[in-house]
């Protein structure tokens, strides 16, 4: 922190997978680099908040996120799987992704959907920034110039999570659009995140609200049959706690593993409406990676599919 304040125009560097690209393209010529990889504790994770939150150190690579926290953070881990190539995942970090604050940063939709918090610190002290307040413009964040990201706090999953990303190549591609979904079974909340479809990563509030209502209704009408929205959580000792109590986090999540498509519980109409609301929440542009029209369309498809998969997971858990 001291160094940070002493060298105000130094660029912090973690994996270097963004920064060095800028340097190579002549877009950045930092006079000084502040290497964060040697900072203590920065590349580890822990459960805090009575096991309800995963605290991921700023220097933890995507590879380790995939290997070590995909249980409690399935959407973030799935996003990490889609990032770059093995080399990039070995070096790149969520902190670097956040500090770059690109609307196409793949961790962002997952962090939004999970209501993550960014732990930052400067000589003036630490503070927590809600993810909803973090992205303030294209490649602009709420980070003050002298602040460093120390960690990211991600509430552990209590229900199904999904992340999906569209790009014209089957690997190592910047998202044309991406979408994350989090069914917080314990709290009865729905979280969403949209990438590459606006000046910043976005949340689809109307879609979240609609789905929360539908799931709540379904629960009320289904209480007798004990098959509703929160039942899996309530019956099995409270959502994610079941997980921490019964098994080690870290096993492979269901995300991305194909499964038989169970008939979606809420029906295709709801899924389509959800997709439409997600698409409406976006404000995409035309650029080399795709048209605004295609982006909206693809988002609606992604949101619909993610919802169907998440609901199938929810049924399976019940």
């Amino acid at each position: 922190m001291l160094l940070r304040s002493q060298y105000p125009d130094a660029s912090p560097i973690c994996g270097g997978t963004d920064l060095m690209v800028d340097v190579n393209f002549g877009r950045a010529r930092p006079p000084t680099l502040l290497d964060l990889t040697s900072v203590e504790d920065i590349d580890s994770w822990e459960l805090i908040d009575d096991g309800r939150t995963v605290r991921i150190g700023a220097g933890m690579s995507y590879t380790r996120i995939i290997d070590e926290v995909s249980g409690p953070c399935p959407a973030l881990a799935q996003a990490a799987r889609t990032i770059g190539s093995p080399q990039i995942r070995n070096r790149g970090t969520v902190a670097g992704n956040l500090a770059t604050a690109s609307p196409a940063g793949d961790s962002h939709p997952a962090l939004l959907a999970c209501w993550a918090q960014v732990e930052v610190e400067s000589v003036r002290g630490p503070r927590l920034i809600d993810i909803d307040d973090f992205f303030v413009g294209p490649k602009r964040s709420a980070l003050e110039p002298d602040e460093l990201i120390r960690a990211v706090r991600v509430p552990a999953a209590t229900g199904p999570q999904q992340f999906a990303k569209v790009g014209p190549r089957n690997a190592m591609v910047i998202a044309t659009v991406s979408f994350a979904l989090n069914l917080d079974a314990a709290a009865g909340r729905v979280g969403t995140g949209i990438g590459s479809a606006g000046p910043t990563p976005l949340r689809a509030r109307a879609a979240e609200q609609m789905l929360e209502d539908v799931l709540a209704d379904r629960q009320t009408s289904a209480t007798q049959e004990a098959g509703g929205w929160q039942t899996s959580a309530t019956q099995k000792a409270g959502g994610w706690r079941r997980g921490t109590a019964d098994r080690q986090w870290g096993e492979a999540p269901s995300v991305g593993r194909p499964r038989r498509q169970d008939p979606p519980a809420v029906g295709d109409r709801v899924a389509r409406e959800f997709g439409a609301l997600v698409a409406e929440a976006a404000s995409p542009i035309d650029d080399v990676r795709g048209s605004a029209q295609y982006r909206r369309h693809a988002l609606s498809v992604l949101a619909r599919r993610c919802l169907n998969w998440a609901l199938a997971d929810l049924e399976a858990d019940a």
């Binding site: 569209v166 089957n170 995300v255 499964r259």
Partner: peptide, 9 residues
């Protein structure tokens, strides 16, 4: 869509 995880069929 490959690793983008966009379809299960």
């Amino acid at each position: 869509g490959g690793v983008g995880n966009v379809t299960r069929g």
